[in-house]
Computed example of a mutant assay.
Amino acid sequence: MRVIAGEWRGRKLVAPPGELTRPTADRTRETLFSMLASRLGSFEDLGVLDLFAGSGALGLEALSRGAATCTFIEQEASAVKAIRANIDALGARNRTVVQQSSVMTLGPAKKAHDLILLDPPYATGAGQVALDRMIRLGWIDAATWIALETGAKEDVEVKLLRVDADRKVGKAKLTLLRLDA
């Protein structure tokens, strides 16, 4: 696993040991960030939230491309250790917050984020449940872009969100969502 583009292009990332996490493949990450770049134009100065963060590869990719900050939320201790190791290896501690907790325990947001990246376990519906909760708690507003990775055969439907785009990449499906106007 490596950073695809930006300031840290080509730098290797560590993944948590064991089978508790499923890191997003480089090809899938490359497709996702291409989809986002065509809509956002730039990642400069974005506030990013990486949920079900695993190794932190998605949030670190956004930081490498110019995002101002990233908050990583992950409940597994071995994954949190990998995220912190990756942050330290890239010298990104001053632009990151790592929180070891379940996405389902998030409280009300201080402000909405610009970009939310979710890579929950496949076939659990956890991403959709988390998004529903985050809408109610103010983590998402009209300017927020949401990227959800699911299994290729999963349908994504969240009240108040519309699908902007989706694309299958191998066993994964990438879905970009926005608040319904």
Rank of each mutant, 00 (worst) to 15 (best):
K12Q: 10
V14C: 14
A15P: 02
R22A: 05
P23F: 03
D26G: 07
D26T: 07
R27V: 13
E30K: 03
E30G: 02
S34W: 06
S34D: 12
A37D: 13
S38F: 11
G41M: 00
G41L: 01
F43H: 00
D45H: 11
L49K: 11
D50H: 13
F52V: 04
G54I: 01
S55P: 01
S55D: 01
G59N: 14
G59I: 14
L60I: 15
A62W: 11
L63S: 09
S64D: 07
G66E: 01
A68G: 04
T69N: 09
T69D: 07
T69Q: 09
C70V: 15
T71F: 11
E74R: 01
E76S: 06
S78Y: 08
R84F: 07
A85C: 10
N86Y: 11
N86C: 10
I87W: 05
D88H: 07
A89G: 05
T96I: 07
T96F: 07
V97G: 11
Q99C: 11
S101H: 03
S102C: 06
G107A: 05
P108Y: 15
K110I: 15
L117W: 03
D119E: 04
D119K: 04
P120G: 05
P121L: 14
T124F: 10
A126D: 13
A126T: 06
Q128C: 13
R136N: 09
L137H: 15
W139K: 15
D141S: 03
A143F: 06
W145H: 03
I146L: 02
A147F: 02
L148G: 03
T150P: 03
